[in-house]
Amino acid sequence: MSPAPAVKTLLIDGKDVSASGDQTILGAARENGISIPTLCHLDGLTEVGACRLCLVELKGSTRLQPACVMLVEEGMEVTTHTPRLQKYRRMILELLFAERNHVCSVCVANNMCELQDQAEAHGITHVRFPYRSPSLPVDASHERFALDHNRCILCTRCVRVCNEIEGAHTWDLLGRGVNSLLISDLHEPWGESDTCTSCGKCVQVCPTGALFDKSKVGGKVRKNPDFLSYLNEMREGLR
């Protein structure tokens, strides 16, 4: 057992905050009622620092740091909502809308989508970048669930939950850059996957309408990704 990490004190948006040394800036901020937008982060999964929505400014550094991975340090001065950060966040969201084919009006996740929520929270009324309109498939081969690549933002939450929590490692990424594609097993239809246990965790953690439960289409059912923290606490409690 390693010794308990020391308590650090820092300043977030001018507010004095104390946190344990193994806490991220995001964790410390949320504990103190300061919200920082996130997409790839999910309590209970390893951090990847990929969506860049949670970038914050640190005093004395020109480089922006992802709050979800950066650990707190003594005396740190963090700013979470500068005009520059807000501008970048808006652009990142715009890029996501332009990257694939998001047609909210006919989407299973309409009004229940984290991407849509973020767009609204950031005052996005339109996308200035040209829509890329890629041609992407829908995999509906699984008997209970479906994957619509048109709405996938490649946050890899599904990959992580399936690997880290369910232990099945059904999902992974193929290709790179804008051509990255979420695949099940060795690029087989999801319904033919040998590893998928049909546990549905990936569907629950997916922030968008990319992964969905076929029986709930049109049912206006919010996903529930919060079960992870509970699972983890259970696990830790058992130890």
């Binding site: 998001h102 047609v103 009324t125 829509y131 309109s133």
Partner: peptide, 19 residues
């Protein structure tokens, strides 16, 4: 004024764009 998603994003009509 762009009124509605079709004017603002292309929306349903733009679903033909990949083809």
């Amino acid at each position: 004024v762009s009124l509605g998603d079709c004017a603002v994003t292309g929306n349903v009509p733009a679903m033909r764009n990949p083809i």
